[in-house]
Design a protein around this nucleic acid. Structure first.
Lengths: 151, 151
DNA sequence: TGCGATTATATCGCGTGCGATATATAATTA
DNA sequence: TAATTATATATCGCACGCGATATAATCGCA
């Protein structure tokens, strides 16, 4: 291999050339931004994601939440147990299919939606980017996810 | 509040309206894609990120890695200890400033770069998106990070 | 019907992430 | 120079994520 070609190939390992790193860093930074909004409600960021799913779809099964959150039961079972412990949800074995666990929102779980109403607004205030650019970014990420899910 | 207005505000809490969720999900899915490439080298994804920084900047201090990786010492100290245990790096107290710890690459740590040469190519094969779109996505994420870092 | 394959959830172990706090060293300043 | 402040790293505790594996219930097909 020529010196030039070797150099080019090594340069692909520069941090600034990676897509993965800004993805990883942006995700963590955005999560940090949510933390002070969610902490007063006694929620973590992944718990907030799961509650959003439940506000749309509850009562529903654990596997339904897995599908929407793109998380596995090894993450979701403990998370849902904590949500149950904290009084947001109830976990019940399905009568129709004894393998399945149905997740139901408690009154507290339902009411938390009202207390979260301000969260999206606060976030879009913090993400000081034009809405059109945010929309494009969101769409690109969704395209990426669709690609990755097929694999 | 009118019924319509209330409805609009609640709709902001739909999972599909969030930017944060595709960011969170895409980051995790991409990390999963790296795993089979890194596992044979005995590396996790965050360890790979730190090694990329070291291939550019080593020897350097822990705080320098913190700055580039956007991670804190509570994450990096244990990670670097594991990298040291696995023979990729050496940690030494700086003689100039006894507070600082200098991270040096071992021969194994340096050689691992050669073994990672194929990783970026493999990844871009897997991310089946036009390069121009990937470049735009990367730039948007970097803009987002720049915004978030100011806060 | 019965038995192997599939599905739904749970558990385990390990490596992050990160808020909070601790400790030691260096820099500053009164 | 002594006291204060700032900086660099480490530690602790807890909640993820996830590969691997386990368990129980259901399905499918011979």
């Amino acid at each position: 291999m020529t010196q030039t070609k070797k150099q080019e190939q090594e340069d692909l390992l520069l941090l600034d050339k990676q897509l993965c790193f800004p993805l990883y860093a942006a995700s963590r930074l955005v999560t940090r931004l949510y933390q002070p909004l969610l902490e007063p409600l006694g929620l973590t960021y992944p718990q907030y994601i799961v509650l959003m799913i439940l506000w749309e779809d509850a009562p529903c099964s654990v596997s339904h939440i897995c599908d929407r959150a793109l998380l596995n039961t090894n993450t979701l079972t403990p998370l849902l147990k904590r949500l149950e412990n904290d009084g947001f949800v109830v976990r019940t074995r399905s009568k129709i299919d004894e393998r399945a666990v149905e997740i139901t929102l408690t009154e507290k779980g339902k009411n938390t939606k009202t207390q979260c109403k301000h969260v999206p607004q606060e976030m879009s205030k913090s993400l000081c980017m034009p809405d059109s650019k945010l929309a494009t970014l969101k769409q690109s990420l969704e395209d990426l996810i669709a690609d990755l899910q097929e694999q």
